[in-house]
Amino acid sequence: MFDANGGSILTVSDVSVHFGGLLALDRVTFNVARGSRHGILGPNGAGKTTLFNVITGFVSTQAGIVRLNRNDISALSPHRRARLGLVRTFQITTLFKDLTVLENALLGALVRLGHHRNALRAARDDSQAIALAYEQLEQLHLDHLADMPVQQVSYGEQRQLEIAVSLALDPQVLLLDEPTAGLSHAETHAVIDLIRNLPQSLTVVIIEHDLEVVFQLADHLTVLHYGRRIADGLTQEVREDPVVREVYLGTD
């Protein structure tokens, strides 16, 4: 196991969530080390997305604490957590479909620059924000689509745009919820490369149920099963863990 506190940017302690009678998360605890690539693994219904929702504030904790840089953020609303640098993507593509690709990135860039409260100056005249949004699109090779409405770009490009929009905020921790869901083989590799090329200073937490993807990307793994943590540690260790092999990878 790794250092429990000193190098942790995000800690989740004893978090439980009930939906009616269903225990979606059962006293889940884990730490995310600063700068790590941390995978959350588990079969469908294991509580991975619920865990993301709890970390980012879209679902409130019924028990337990979420800390960012050792500060308790459990009571903060989602937008406050985003401002603190905890930025997520969604399993189901969540973008502004009627806006252009550039405008999508721009909404992120405006927050980063603190220009999002400006009510009288035209957004398109904010050259600083436009440049930042463009830069983000270029980094992900989406700049040629800048003036296209999002609903006209391909699904694979939309998945990448979600990451671009999130990066425009300059997050401390980027939480990716199945970034390769529904992508073709080639598109999956493009996204993997993209994630690999993210700056090392950025901490990335990634939900995946594609083992190939997760083993390629993650240095740490937390494995969930029916809302409970069944394994946690370095990817190499967790891969060899007999409980994980039995429950998740199959026993053959």
């Binding site: 879209f58 985003a82 806006l99 905020l169």
Partner: peptide, 14 residues
């Protein structure tokens, strides 16, 4: 316009 299109995404953007 962002709120109209996706409140969730707006929240996630801060």
């Amino acid at each position: 316009l962002g709120v109209r299109d996706s409140e969730t995404r707006m929240l996630a953007l801060g």
